[in-house]
């Protein structure tokens, strides 16, 4: 029986490698086209490009019309993810424990922003916030993105919470930890994979969000998706392919830095069970 194990494991590895290979082709094929177009020397998008150059990369990286929105989007994404996590994680803990009455109803309510179409949400939020003079202040943009991203953090944290052993938290209580201490030193580390995944979702959603950003941003707070939409509406050049490449490189750098500094495993894993 034991002797069979290595063979089985090798087969599983081979299968996994094969699967990842096919998935990588599916995921990367359309993106590779865009990456190649980003290096075109022509003024128009075409494939394969007639020649190669760095002119579009140089153009977008030196163009405040793209770089300021890129910075805005990064900051807004971080801020929205942070606020959404601060609001959603405690709520998920409350719901997941089922110690709260109406936990099912609470969950439904907190997930409800997922079900309202973004266009309607954006327009209604614009009219709503305009009454308080918040519509173009930058706060409106953050509020809108927190409303949209909160359910993502909530749902992923909840998923992890439900799979967890409640007895660990109970044990902390029994051992005399105050609720706050138990929350900080037991519950939070256990929920880490859910918090990381949820915050990542929140960032990605905010980073790519268009409807709310279109209506609630101003000239100074315009985000990258807004800049890109307004660029492609009346221009047809490879700048948008180049800016996509810039984003991809940015994310690779961030991932590598996180891996070096913290180790992605540690960031994404539950802390407690390793201790």
């Amino acid at each position: 029986m034991i002797a069979l194990l290595p063979g089985w494991r090798a087969r599983r590895r081979l299968l996994a490698a094969l699967y990842v290979g096919v998935a990588a082709i599916f995921i990367l094929a359309p993106l590779a086209v865009v990456m190649i177009v980003a290096f075109t020397s022509a003024s128009f998008v075409s494939f394969p490009p007639p020649g190669y150059s760095l002119r579009w990369l140089a153009k977008v990286m030196g163009d405040a019309a793209f770089m300021r929105p890129l910075l805005n989007s990064v900051l807004l994404g971080l801020a929205a993810a942070a606020v959404a996590a601060v609001l959603a994680v405690p709520a998920a803990v409350a719901i997941g424990r089922r110690s709260v009455r109406w936990s099912a109803e609470l969950e439904a309510f907190l997930l409800a922003p997922l079900s309202l179409p973004a266009l309607i949400m954006a327009l209604a939020l614009l009219f709503f916030l305009a009454r308080f003079g918040l519509a173009t202040s930058g706060w409106g943009l953050l509020i809108g993105h927190v409303v949209i991203t909160l359910p993502y953090v909530l749902r992923t944290v909840l998923a992890v919470q439900r799979g967890l052993d409640a007895s660990l938290v109970e044990a902390a209580h029994v051992l005399g930890a105050t609720p706050a201490r138990a929350f900080l030193s037991v519950t939070l580390p256990l929920l880490r994979p859910g918090i990381v995944a949820g915050s990542l979702f929140a960032f990605l959603i905010s980073f790519d969000e268009l409807a709310v950003a279109l209506l609630l941003s101003s000239a100074t707070t315009a985000t990258l998706p807004v800049a890109i939409l307004n660029h492609v509406a009346h221009n047809y050049d490879p700048a948008v392919a180049a800016i996509s490449l810039v984003k991809i490189v940015l994310v690779i750098v961030v991932l590598l830095t996180l891996e070096r500094l913290y180790g992605l495993d540690r960031l994404m894993l539950s802390r407690v069970r390793r201790a």
């Binding site: 900051l75 807004l76 971080l78 801020a79």
Partner: peptide
Amino acid sequence: IGAILASALAVAVPAGAQ
């Protein structure tokens, strides 16, 4: 991480309209 996010928040929301 909290400090980084807090400063992101401060920069993302510019104070006062021009």
